[in-house]
């Protein structure tokens, strides 16, 4: 084991400095050091998408990245995404459509869905399915998630079209 390394980064707008083992994965850093347990570990292979967070604006798998690689970055987790209110309509749509059952995939799923919605327009259902196809959900069968994302895309496009 090599010596601990000090890292400084921003999580949900708050600066954090910590000393971590070089081998610590970003997901473990978020959960254990930053105590942001909304990000979940599912497969540890970058396959299931449960650990997806936003890093400098892009979706990343926090189980495939070392904490030390996040030095100097800005990370957004589900806690920040929810608290900021920026995706309130998406969270509300997930709730109304029951696009959440056990909730374990939800944080990663929401980050992925938000990424698609940020591209604007109204993606068709196949495009939505394709975009979230890196996020495993065992409970819902995905349809309600597609419903929620599609509805938010329509609503946002309607508002944009109305110049609101």
């Amino acid at each position: 084991m090599s010596a601990p390394v000090q890292i400084t980064l921003s999580i949900n707008g708050e600066p954090i400095t910590a000393t971590v083992a070089p081998r610590m994965m970003l997901v473990d850093f978020l959960r254990e050091v930053a105590a942001l347990t909304g990000t979940h570990l599912g497969c540890a292979h970058g396959v299931c998408g449960a650990c997806t967070v936003r890093l400098d604006g892009a979706s990343v798998r926090s189980c495939l990245m070392l904490a030390v690689q996040a030095e100097g970055t800005e990370i957004e987790t589900i806690e920040g995404l929810a608290d900021s209110g920026a995706e309130a309509d998406l969270l509300d749509a997930f709730h109304r459509h029951n696009a959440v059952q056990c909730g374990y995939c939800s944080s990663g799923m929401l980050v992925s869905a938000a990424e698609l919605l940020a591209q604007g327009g109204v993606p068709d259902r196949a495009t939505i399915r394709d975009h979230i196809s890196g996020n495993y959900c065992r409970c819902t069968g995905y349809q309600s998630i597609v419903d929620a994302v599609e509805e938010v895309a329509r609503t946002r496009a309607g508002k944009a079209g109305a110049g609101a």
Partner: peptide, 12 residues
Amino acid sequence: RPNAVRLLHGRG
């Protein structure tokens, strides 16, 4: 589901 909101907010 009333108890699903906190799951969506990462507060599970």
